[in-house]
Simulated assay, not measured.
Amino acid sequence: MHKPPFLAAAVAAAICASVSNAVSTAAYAKAPSTDCPHIFGTNSQPRVTVTAATGRTQSLCFRGYAVQTSTATRTALWSAENLTAQAVLAARSVPRDSDFYEEAEIPTPDRARLSDYGRGSSLDRGHLAPSGDFPDLASQAESFSLANVVPQASASNRRMWSHIETSTRRMAREYGQVFVVTGPAFDAAQATRLNGRISIPTYLWKAVYVPGVGAAAYVARNDATPWYAVVSIAELAAFAGVDPFPRLDKVYRDAPMTLLAPTPHPGEKAGRKVNLATLTATAVERSALPEAQEPRHAFRQSSVLPFVGAVLAH
């Protein structure tokens, strides 16, 4: 698979100089944990693949997921889950009955605010670990922490990305257990901020590891484009600046397993699978396109790595 010529050196200037390994609890969480073993299993916490950085990160452990947030973006860099068939089936009967809330464990200047997504915002509060994954009301309520949210184009959140989430749950039912890590990726050439505070992702990615089977990741644009790519874990780490499964065997890292095609909602068209170079070759357009219309932007090859310092410095 073609590997985009992203700049490795730029990643190092992007995230955080001191990465905190301390894990706190959110308002709804049951008890503190040092490493969220129920979430990561033997895979270890995802690793931000930088050698130098500016800013700070903070890890939070919830009942059903864990996140690492950045003061530079005021979003999560990743959100991790351990999905089982039993939990996914139970989640079907849990009504969506929760409200978004500011994460009190993150210092006020460093966290996303409810007012950031106030009236006039054209972007959704997009879950990284989706509420539909959680088998009880308490776990679902935790998923509405703004620490687990990124600014997301409505057409992405409600179509292509929702289709990817549905297929991930299907894999959990079929295999019995999957480890999932979801996160944003940013392109400095398209850097924008919501309310002048929160970095808007250019892309979203979801990495899936099935023990004994393999691993791979979906990548989609944060706009109405009905395209997606499937990449290896090694390629994702180079693309997004995050290694979702640091202890994964090399054979699983280098060759992507077959992921289920995104499952469209009734009456919607299936997304088109493309390679990563094609997915990243056009400027992201966040305005709503008609569902069946493909973008008509002039093609350009992206040459910047997500998490570039220019994105995070503004």
Rank of each mutant, 00 (worst) to 15 (best):
Q152F: 00
T225Q: 09
T71F: 04
S162R: 13
P32E: 02
A277I: 01
A270Q: 15
S18M: 10
F245E: 03
A238Y: 13
L114S: 02
Q68L: 09
W78Y: 15
P46I: 04
V231M: 07
P266V: 09
T84P: 01
P256I: 07
A217G: 03
D243K: 07
L146T: 03
S18T: 15
T258W: 00
S79M: 08
T202H: 03
A31F: 01
V23Y: 15
A298D: 10
L204S: 04
T42N: 13
V242I: 08
Y209D: 02
L128C: 02
R113V: 00
V178N: 07
T258A: 15
A281E: 09
L7T: 12
A283T: 13
A310E: 15
V149S: 05
G118Q: 03
C61G: 12
A215K: 02
A288I: 12
E268S: 12
A277D: 11
I15D: 14
G126A: 03
F134R: 03
I164N: 00
E285R: 13
I233T: 06
T73P: 05
A155R: 09
P211Y: 02
G120Q: 01
P244G: 08
R113E: 10
P306Q: 07
R197P: 04
A240S: 15
Y175D: 12
T202W: 05
Q152Y: 02
A238M: 07
S199A: 13
N157H: 01
Y101D: 04
Q301N: 08
R247H: 14
S98T: 09
G271Q: 13
I106K: 03
I15F: 14
R92N: 10
A76L: 09
R158S: 11
V311Q: 13
I164A: 05
V150M: 03
A147Q: 05
L114M: 05
T49G: 06
F186P: 01
M1N: 12
P184T: 03
P226N: 11
T278S: 11
A129Q: 03
A191D: 07
L83K: 12
T51C: 11
P226C: 01
Q45P: 07
R63E: 13
F186N: 06
V11D: 10
G64D: 08
R221G: 10
A281Q: 11
S154Q: 12
G267F: 14
G309I: 00
Y209K: 05
P246M: 06
S167G: 04
G41T: 03
G212N: 05
A277K: 09
P246A: 11
F299A: 15
C16Y: 10
K206T: 02
F144R: 04
S154Y: 08
R221C: 08
W161Q: 01
G176D: 07
A310P: 00
V242Q: 07
E235I: 01
C36P: 04
V284L: 11
R296C: 11
Y117D: 02
F307G: 00
A224E: 08
A191I: 03
A104V: 12
R158W: 00
F307D: 14
V210D: 03
R221A: 06
A26S: 14
A29G: 04
A22P: 00
R170F: 06
